[in-house]
Design a protein around this nucleic acid. Structure first.
Lengths: 238, 238
DNA sequence: CGTAGGCTTGAAAAGCGTCAATAGGAGTGG
DNA sequence: CCACTCCTATTGACGCTTTTCAAGCCTACG
């Protein structure tokens, strides 16, 4: 978490100590376990220590839309620090550990220590940027491009989170979950992935393991430009 | 703007004075004028004083996705305060006035005055919540529901911005722009709107003027629940 | 009165969804 | 160790929503 927050912002040792002194308790949650439910009044924010989680919303016909995917080191639901009732659910994708931090402590540290507050604000801004890209992905790209885009985003974010190389990774989601993230159906996700494989853009030893032979080709197929992730450290204002 | 920022947060008189003392210059922009372009290095944030603006992204095939719509009093591009390069464009929908405020001044006031910083952070969190709803709208709802949802959101937001009643308003967008906001085509937007009209959910004296006979019926058709707008003042933490 | 931008409508095609059936793999209990 | 079950992946056939292409219309505005 420290590493993630410090990505754009340099902290003093005192800031670091204050962060590490935050009260929290660690929970291990199973796959599918809800961390927060839509309409809940949440009192904690959480940091993912291991495993994967998603944020999702349910629409009228019972369909689900995944609005973001989170991995090791990321703060989920920072919005719970200022917004009381949750407008979406947070759910584990895989078994994993999360650290729960009381809302008041998040707020306190954010306002007592400007560098930390700034890093958190920045984090929510990057989050919002990813949301915008997802709106465009789901709204204006065809199935093939959407899936390729998601695979690229995953690839880059896993690498940034320190989980391996960008050309080879394990997808922590089922095809139904991929469908919920891309606004497609599981069946069509399956066909589309097989299409990408048939065209040599990816290889899969098994359904979940993604090997990207030519990253640039996949990025082109996915209309992927990592700018929206704001990974460039010069991208944040000092 | 003051009113909007103060929606959730109470400011002291000193805070208000500081806000009003911010340096800015006012510009009047025509319809279609770009305020910020994707990839620009932005140096200002802006507040809309009159008229409407949208934020949008362009995807590979040249299609455009509108990711949000903004009206009087809203701060657009607060993210430019901390993120250097713009991941999307901001463009006027109608002729209108905007106040441009230098990035450094935004940052200074946000960190010198906690109440203001908190209100701004809150603003970005609500923004993000709306993005999430849009992902769900575009990803998991059919054309009719999407359009009805957008009409409801507009209706509520116009009222909150102090621009009339929720049952009767002028849409500031063409059907092509509606299409870009909902991830549809202009042709299909047209058919869908006429469908809503034929079913008595809306009335239109002319193509742009929306009259909502039975708000609840339209909200039901649009799967609309205003929770994601976080309008409840108790919805923010004090 | 003419032009341009936006709206409306039709017909056909495409992409994606639905339904349904099968296959594979991991875990469980006998 | 095997049978059983559940969950996930895969595939086919079919249908529907939405797109595409194309044409005509309306209205505001010069």
């Amino acid at each position: 978490m420290l590493r993630k927050l410090e990505y754009h912002e340099r902290f003093s040792q005192a800031d670091r100590d204050a962060l590490l002194a935050l009260p929290f308790h660690i929970r291990t949650y199973d796959r599918h376990h809800y961390v927060v439910r839509e309409r809940d009044v949440a009192t904690h924010s959480c940091v993912i220590l291991s495993g994967f989680a998603v944020r999702s919303k349910i629409v009228c016909n019972g369909n689900r839309q995944i609005v973001s995917i989170h991995m090791k080191g990321e703060m989920v639901d920072l919005q719970n620090s200022l917004l009381k009732v949750a407008d979406h659910s947070v759910q584990m994708l895989t078994t994993g550990k999360v650290a729960l931090i009381p809302r008041e402590d998040i707020l306190r540290i954010a306002f007592e220590r400007p560098a930390i507050g700034r890093a958190m604000w920045l984090d929510t801004l990057v989050d919002a940027s990813i949301f915008r890209e997802w709106i465009a992905n789901v709204g204006r790209r065809d199935a093939r491009t959407r899936i390729a885009h998601l695979l690229c985003e995953f690839s880059i974010r896993l690498k940034v989170a320190g989980m391996g190389v960008e050309t080879d990774y394990e997808l922590p989601m089922t095809q139904e979950q991929l469908a919920d993230a891309t606004g497609l159906t599981a069946v069509h996700v399956n066909r589309t992935i097989k299409g990408l494989e048939a065209d040599g853009l990816i290889d899969r030893a098994n359904p979940r393991s993604i090997y990207i032979g030519d990253w640039r080709k996949l990025a082109a197929a996915g209309d992927f430009d990592s700018g929206y992730l704001h990974l460039d450290r010069g991208d944040a204002v000092n």
